[in-house]
Amino acid sequence: MTNELKKFNKLVTLEEALHYIQDGCTLMYGGFGGVGNPPTLINGIIEKDRKELILIGNDAGFPKIGIGKVVSQGRAKRLIASHIGSNPVAGQLMVEGKLDVEFSPQGTLAERIRAGGVGLAGILTDIGIGSMVEEGKEKVELNGKTYLIETALTADVAIIHAKKSDYFGNLIYDTSARNTNPLVAMAGKITIAEVEEIVPLGSLSPEEIVTPGVFVDLIVESKGVDWRWAWE
């Protein structure tokens, strides 16, 4: 790699990346049911004994898969997610008052993350009107209809998983592992991408790239995925 290209190299060690994830930080993660969670980063968080985390993501994973390991070990104090049903430990922690859970309908959650990523303060939605979802939230009238104001979501650090990347962080995802990762990539003050295969600059076709490297701050090489046996 020439000196000119080195300035576009965002590849760092796992140790360097984990420096940005500290106790009490707000951590947003991509994926769905563990698929698309970044396993190497998550294992690193556990090994570094990070705790008191505020987590934002689609779900609580499985007890021993993906972000579920962080939740099940009591390392999160708050979770914003669309559901936690796949991780019974999360439900138990919530009932015991050890985990504060904010439920957000899946589409609303995705839009709140997207809004945060593009710099909006929030979104308007009629989902939840007349239910417990509206408790404590502002309402507005627009064109004769009532909407809830749902605040945008951002994070101190966003962690995502991709199948392939160049050294600048242009990302390609693996089928359904793409779930929520492109949105999460935009919403972190620092975005760390865990990547299975890293290729030279210019190797990727522009038509392949889903997340442009401008949204990615750091890249770490993945040591393998753990979601393929999620159903065992």
Rank of each mutant, 00 (worst) to 15 (best):
M1F: 14
M1K: 14
T2V: 08
T2K: 06
E4M: 13
N9D: 15
N9A: 05
V12Y: 03
L14S: 09
E16M: 03
L18Q: 04
Y20R: 09
I21E: 10
I21A: 05
I21K: 08
Q22S: 14
G24L: 05
L27V: 15
L27Y: 09
Y29G: 02
Y29I: 15
G36P: 10
N37W: 04
N37L: 06
P39F: 08
T40K: 05
I42V: 15
G44K: 06
G44Q: 04
E47C: 03
D49N: 13
R50M: 13
R50Y: 02
K51W: 04
E52V: 00
I56H: 12
N58F: 08
P63Y: 06
I67N: 06
G68I: 02
K69I: 12
K69G: 13
K69S: 06
Q73W: 01
R75C: 01
K77G: 13
R78C: 03
I80M: 12
I80N: 06
G85P: 00
S86E: 15
V89H: 01
A90S: 10
G91D: 01
M94Y: 08
V95A: 15
E96N: 13
E96P: 01
G97T: 01
K98V: 01
F103A: 07
L109D: 14
L109K: 13
L109G: 13
E111R: 08
R112N: 09
R114Y: 12
T125A: 08
G128N: 00
G128W: 07
I129P: 07
I129R: 02
G130S: 14
G136R: 11
E138Q: 08
V140C: 04
V140R: 07
L142K: 10
L142S: 03
N143C: 01
N143G: 10
E150F: 04
T151W: 01
T151S: 08
A152Y: 05
T154K: 10
A155N: 07
A155P: 00
A158Y: 03
A158E: 02
I159C: 03
D166C: 04
Y167T: 15
F168I: 02
N170P: 14
N170Q: 02
N181Y: 09
L183N: 12
G188N: 14
E194L: 11
E196V: 09
E196M: 00
I198S: 12
E207G: 00
I209N: 07
V214S: 13
V214R: 12
I219R: 05
S222Y: 00
K223D: 11
G224H: 08
R228S: 07
W229Y: 04
W231E: 03
